Amino acid sequence: MLRSRWTRAAGYAAPALVLAGFGLTHPLVLDPASAPWWTTLHVVLLPVFPLLAVAQWLLLSSAPAALRRPGRLAAFGFAAFYGGLDAVAGIAAGTVVHAEHAVTPVTGAVFGMGDTLGQAGALCFLAANVAVVATVARETSWRAVPGAVLLLAASISFFDSHIFWPRGVLTMLGIATGMFLLGAIANLAPARPSAH
């Protein structure tokens, strides 16, 4: 039981840890020299970012329907919209800069659309994490505070940090730690009797 609890908690943290690692290699600016890696990195990240939503989805398993349904809808919104950011501002922008050998007005337009998608995704990510925190706090009371503070603060930082070094990497580490701490204590409270 104890080993499975820590293993499960590590699983919740793993996507953000992987993203933090990739953040160490994320170019700070997109230019003709960085464009090939910029594009490739965002192709690699396409299946990784949605794993954050999977962690949220699983952490909401024990939530009452009033938290679980909107929380899971928000997690889905994060996966969809943030995937759009990576496809547009990552893959498409990198491809344009590489093909044109320059940053052009088209690049700016592509980034504008990517930013819109990213903001929607980050808002969904925060909303899902609010539901996660409410779920775990409902089960564990004050023991949820350290993980909740880290997860919510990092979720707010995520709005404009992405995974860029240094702040984005620290943001991902905060998300990983918050999810780990909440995952480690989730579902530990005795089951509440159901009212019939």
Rank of each mutant, 00 (worst) to 15 (best):
S62V: 03
L170F: 13
G112F: 10
G178P: 03
F164L: 13
A195P: 02
Y12T: 01
T171M: 09
G77A: 13
R69G: 04
E100G: 05
A154D: 06
R3E: 15
A127G: 07
P193E: 14
F125H: 12
G118R: 08
S161M: 08
V88C: 08
G71S: 03
V54G: 06
A13S: 06
T104G: 10
W165G: 00
T7M: 14
L181E: 10
S34L: 05
A13H: 04
V103W: 05
T177W: 01
A10P: 07
V106A: 15
L17C: 08
V110C: 07
P50A: 09
H26N: 11
R143P: 06
A109C: 01
A63K: 01
F76V: 15
C124H: 06
L85Q: 11
P47H: 01
S161G: 00
I91P: 00
L181M: 12
L2K: 12
G94M: 06
P50N: 06
N129Q: 11
A176V: 09
H42W: 02
A74N: 04
F76E: 02
L30D: 08
G178S: 04
A176G: 09
A20F: 05
R143T: 13
R72K: 11
H162L: 14
G11C: 12
P193N: 05
V96R: 06
F22R: 02
A13K: 04
G83Q: 04
H196I: 10
V132R: 02
I163P: 00
V149P: 09
T171G: 09
R8W: 13
P70K: 02
A195V: 15
M1G: 14
A134V: 11
R138Y: 07
R8Y: 13
F49I: 12
L30E: 07
A33V: 15
S157Q: 10
R72M: 12
V169Y: 01
V88S: 03
F111K: 00
S141G: 15
F158K: 02
V133P: 04
T116N: 04
L17T: 10
V136D: 02
V169F: 03
